[in-house]
Design a protein around this nucleic acid. Structure first.
Lengths: 127, 127
DNA sequence: GAAACTGTATTATACGAGTGATACGCTTTC
DNA sequence: GAAAGCGTATCACTCGTATAATACAGTTTC
């Protein structure tokens, strides 16, 4: 069963996007695997304190991307066959790193400065 | 006069945020300096093809942060005295790099992998 | 087979962000 | 002082997001 224990609601982006991101991060991190069972819409909505429709929206998008399978009445299972996990990893890292390198470059920073900055942030961010 | 020639509208974030970001990037890059004149709300809105209110919102936020001064009827001028530019630089780089490291860390990447990724993206992004 | 759960669908409501249209008063310029 | 341009304020509209309340059909479990 995919865990949402460490899920924390944040501001700035829609809830359904956060749910989607949480699952995708799990895929990349390896904690979400092919065939894994997702919490039911009702269960998860109760756990997160949100409306079932909000969870449904996230699940729907997951299914439209072919990363999940759900049949009426049955449980919803992750579907990560055929290198899909690697695709998600590539897409996610590229989109995140791409946006930010581009932004920092436009601010006039050099590659060296960016790397230095990242290394410093990495330590500070440590919990 | 602060230039918006290379301004490109993007999707995903509000227009007023993009305008704000464009100016702040200019501050960090050094192309926007203390006392510089901003285009009038109407001029810029016509140039970008958006509503004057959208520009006003960006300018208002700029003023609330103390980075700009505007008097009714007169021109709007940048106000970057006393190391404000350096503050903007620190704030911007920290927020961007912070998001990046946090997001990539949660995906299970190591610092080494992140640095490698950044270096690769840096080359690819080159125009 | 009945109960409890599942996914799915529909309709309605609320709210804020973002944008559009317009008007008013002030400053500058000639 | 009149005109043009400026900043400012207000009202209205759309759209995305989230919620709420149900309803129905399929499956699992006992």
């Amino acid at each position: 069963m995919i865990s949402f224990e460490d899920f924390k609601m944040a501001e700035g982006s829609p809830i359904y996007v956060q749910i989607l991101r949480h699952i995708k991060r799990g895929i990349v991190a390896g904690t979400v695997r092919d065939g894994d069972e997702l919490p039911s819409r009702r269960m998860l909505s109760a756990l997160l304190g949100v409306n079932p429709n909000t969870v449904q929206k996230a699940y729907r998008m997951l299914e439209e991307e072919g990363l999940m399978q759900s049949h009426s009445g049955a449980k919803s299972l992750m579907q990560l066959d055929g290198g899909k996990a690697e695709l998600v990893r590539a897409e996610l890292t590229r989109s995140i790193a791409g946006e930010l390198t581009s932004a920092l470059r436009h601010m006039g920073l050099t590659l060296g400065q960016v790397v230095e900055l990242i290394e410093k942030m990495w330590e500070d961010d440590e919990e």
